[in-house]
Design a protein around this nucleic acid. Structure first.
Length: 109
DNA sequence: TGTATGACGAGTT
DNA sequence: CAACTCGCCATAC
């Protein structure tokens, strides 16, 4: 645990954990909320290290609602399974009604 | 120690 | 309308 390591990653984890059940958010939304709209990339990469954390990475997708990070989960469709178990419709790695389940930290938080 | 790269996104060509 | 480029910064090699 590195206290001086309060970086984007840590912040990303914090926000990601705040995503309510049955909702999803985007990498860009988190980055934007953190004040770094251009660092959406880092958010995604941060999830790479979120394995150890309690971060629900399956609730974080790209701006199009596409499950781009599903390949980083154990199974091939684990991410989709998790989302569907929360009542989120997913077809072909794409979240249906994305606007409805989208959770914007800048507004809700 | 330096280079390459990645779960993205928005702007430009 | 599609493809390309740049920004961002921690991690891997």
């Amino acid at each position: 645990m590195q206290l001086e390591t309060l970086t984007f990653f840590e912040k990303v984890y914090q926000v990601a954990k705040l995503v309510p059940y049955g909702r999803v958010t985007s990498y860009g939304a988190i980055a934007n909320y953190l004040g770094a709209r251009k660092s959406a990339r880092m958010v995604g990469y941060a999830m790479n290290g979120s394995h150890n954390k309690d971060v629900p990475a399956h609730r974080v997708v790209n701006r199009k609602g596409l499950l781009t990070g599903k390949h980083h989960f154990d199974g091939t469709n684990l991410m989709q399974q998790l989302l569907e178990s929360e009542g989120i419709e997913v077809v072909d790695n794409q979240i249906q009604n994305f606007e409805k389940v989208f959770w914007n930290p800048s507004e809700e938080l």
